[in-house]
Each structure stands twice: as C-alpha cells, then as structure tokens.
C-alpha cells in the first residue's frame, strides 16, 4: 500500500519533471523563432521532409477512409431511404473528426517518429554538440525549423486528407452505389458550415494537433538518452504520447466547438 503510493508519487514527480523540461524547451524554441524568420529556407527544407514525404500516406489513407465511410454510411442509411444524406455524413465525419485526428495520428507515426529519431541520432553522434561548438544554436538551426515546418504541414495534410476522403466517399457512393450525385453534393453543402466545420474542424484542430505532435516529437529527440536504445525508446514515446495527447485534446476541442 505504502509502496504503491510511493511509486505513484515517484512517477508523478517524474512526469512533472518531464513536463517542466518540455515547457522550458518550448519557451527556448519560441525564443528562437525570430532567428528562424530571417532564414525561412531552413523551414522549407523541413517542410519537405515532414510534409511532402508524408503526403502519400496521408492521401492514401484519406482515400480509403472516405471510401469506407461511403460504404458504411450507405449500408446504414439505405434502410431509412436516406442515402441522399450520404454526402453530408461523409463530409461531416471527415471535416469534424476523422480528417484532423487521423492525419495527426498518421503524422505522428510517419513524421513525428522520424523527427525524434533524427534529432536523437544527431545528439548521439555529437552533431548537436559540434554545432554548439561552432557557435550555432541548435534551437535556431535544428529544433525550431522542424517545429514550425510541422505546424505548417499539419493543417495542409489534414485538409488534403479530408478532401481526398470526400472524393473517396463520392467515388463509392456515386460511382459504385448509385447515390445521386446532385443529392450527394447539395446535401453536403447545405449542412457543412465553413466556419463551424471547415475552419474549426479541420484548420483549428489540426493546427493544435500539429503544435502538440511536433512539440512532443522534437522534445523527445532533444531529451533522448544518446544511445541506440535511448533513441528507440524516445521514438516509441513520441508515437504513443502524441496519439494519446491528440485524442485527449481532440475531445476537449470537440466539446468546445461542437458540444452543446
């Protein structure tokens, strides 16, 4: 009993400590932003590796998720003779939840883990120390460009995921199952609101997720124990923690935007 409480206390302190360090890390990251603004090309390079390289998995997943939504939605709505609502079912589920959330989870797995591993490896191979000794601040040169590029990439990826998903749903519903094309789009248009669903749903959510995902990924790399085992642990933590935090934050945001 006492032992359990002590263990609880220890792990609480451990997590508080990590949270504190992560916060300090974030503050230094933000203070390096003005330096980055002078050299945006650094962020462009990173935008390539987190954005462009994540594009295939995001687009493919979006397509399949949209197609599944089309099939499932049709199977459920056909009993009520309401298949004309399929467009809005697909669009609302994607824009409000699936687009930003799944894009963030895929991002954590594809780009977040790579960020952690890359930074962890740079630390292990003394590249970061070498950079410091060359009087180059890794916060401005390494961490901040990755963080910023990730935050820019996330909403774009979520938007692409959502749009491709809707096209996938359209393909299944209209081309395969014979839902009326006009009904599909008009039902969608009459229910999906630009501000409530597209801006709040896709844009705001994914910017917040991008912030969280990249903060975790870059911090885990920065904080990794510089051994191969340490990097593998840090990479795993990035994916696990990002997924949990994204889902938790999603609940809060959903309650905020769409809750009663």
């Amino acid at each position: 009993m006492i032992d359990g409480l002590r263990r609880l206390g220890r792990s609480t302190l451990f997590w508080l400590n990590r949270l504190g360090r992560a916060t300090l890390f974030l503050l230094r990251l933000l203070s390096a932003l003005p330096t980055l603004a002078k050299r945006p090309s650094l962020a462009i390079r990173q935008l390539y590796s987190v954005g462009v390289l994540s594009l295939p998995i995001i687009a493919m997943s979006g397509l399949f998720v949209g197609m599944v939504l089309g099939l499932q939605g049709y199977a459920n709505l056909v009993d009520f003779g309401a298949t004309s609502s399929l467009g809005r079912v697909v669009a609302l589920s994607l824009a409000r939840e699936l687009g930003p959330v799944l894009a963030a989870l895929l991002y954590a797995a594809r780009a977040g883990s790579a960020l952690t591993a890359e930074i962890g490896l740079m630390k292990t191979t003394e590249q970061l120390s070498a950079m410091q000794m060359m009087a180059v601040d890794p916060f401005a040169r390494v961490y901040a460009p990755r963080f910023v590029a990730g935050i820019i990439a996330m909403p774009l990826l979520a938007g692409i995921f959502t749009a491709v998903g809707i096209l996938g749903g359209y393909f299944v519903a209209v081309q395969q199952l014979g839902v009326d094309s006009g009904a599909f789009w008009s039902q969608m248009q009459s229910t999906v609101k630009l501000f409530d669903d597209v801006i709040n749903g896709v844009v705001i959510k994914s910017v917040v997720f991008g912030w969280v995902a990249n903060w975790i990924a870059v911090f885990e790399g920065y904080d990794a124990i510089p051994t191969s085992e340490g990097i593998s642990l840090a990479t795993t933590r990035t994916v696990v923690n990002t997924s949990l935090v994204v889902l938790a934050v999603d609940f809060v945001l959903t309650a905020l935007f769409f809750g009663v």
Binding site: L121, M122, T125, E126, Q127, S129, A130, M131, Q132, M133, M134, A135, D137
Partner: peptide
C-alpha cells in the same frame, strides 16, 4: 557563442552532419 567562433573542437566521431 562569440568566443566559440574562435575555438573549435574535433569530436571523436568527427560529428559530421550526416
């Protein structure tokens, strides 16, 4: 950082940017 511009260090692994 100003001082470090005038000193330099060769790391054991070389620490080249990969």
């Amino acid at each position: 950082y100003q001082l470090r511009k005038r000193m330099s260090m060769l790391f054991q692994s070389g620490a080249l940017f990969t």
